[in-house]
Amino acid sequence: MPINFDRVADDYDASRYLPEDAAQRIAAFLCQAASLDMHSLVLDAASGTGHFALPLALHGVQVVGVDISERMLAKLRSKMASTSLPIRLLRSDLTSLGLVHQAFDVVLMAHILHLIPNWQQALREAFRVLKPNGVLLLVWRQGGRSPIHHHYHELLRGRFEIPKHQGAHSSEVAQWLQKQGRTVEILDTQHLHWQWQAPIAQTVDFLQKRVWSRLWRVPDEVHDSVMKELRAWVLANYGSLDGFEVLEGSIMVQKVS
């Protein structure tokens, strides 16, 4: 089954932080890469809370946002409440969209295929709803894991091995697409990076609540033991929970035609 982020919708934006200026730069880049304008119709597949749908709509693009999580879509609706942005939202499974055949100029799939067991079917659906000359944009978020987050996994080692993601990562996806006769171009995104300060207390809280889906599989007793040791490590290395970590993020974009 696809992963549903209902349980972490309240913490999603803060735990996958994307500064507004970075989001706008990424949207402008995607518009240029796919030659989007006010007449273009984009499907934001797994739109979540709108990290990409909102800035694309601000650039005048017509967006249909699809997600399996009703609570994530509710967060996006609340952001849209005071705007007239051209975004329509639909709750749907990416492997069975229920959308019109060949309707979209672009399908955007941002950091989602690694979470979908039947990711090949999700891609088939994307191509089904694309116009004959449409473009598929695959965005993969990179970086952003803090030293505290990393140390959680170090403490976990030897106690529990988290299963690999149910879906696929960029290289495996690219290989599959090329076997289908598709052209996969990796775009130059070196300029699309960002930096932010993450509160230490917030990172510890997010780990405690397991807002990252890979941690959902860790048994409760193992998780509780690791968190106890992690808190002691944080206090020993940072002195308190009151400080900040400086984190960096970036994206990789595959343009598929």
Rank of each mutant, 00 (worst) to 15 (best):
G143W: 04
V226L: 04
Q197T: 09
V139R: 01
I26T: 12
Q178M: 11
A22K: 05
G239Q: 09
K179H: 15
D188L: 03
I162Q: 11
W176F: 12
L247E: 14
A174Y: 04
S82W: 07
P55N: 02
S47K: 03
A236G: 07
V129D: 00
N118S: 15
F104G: 08
R145Q: 12
R182T: 01
K79R: 14
V211S: 06
P19S: 07
S213D: 15
G144D: 05
W176M: 08
L94T: 02
K164P: 10
Q32S: 14
H111L: 12
A103G: 07
P86V: 01
L108H: 05
R16F: 01
A14E: 11
T49P: 06
W119N: 03
V135G: 00
I112R: 02
L113D: 10
H169F: 15
K131M: 04
R141W: 11
A33I: 03
H149V: 01
E185L: 09
S146K: 00
M38T: 14
L108V: 09
A198F: 09
V107Q: 00
M80A: 13
L94G: 04
I68S: 06
S82L: 12
V42I: 04
P55S: 03
P147M: 11
T49K: 00
E154V: 01
I112P: 01
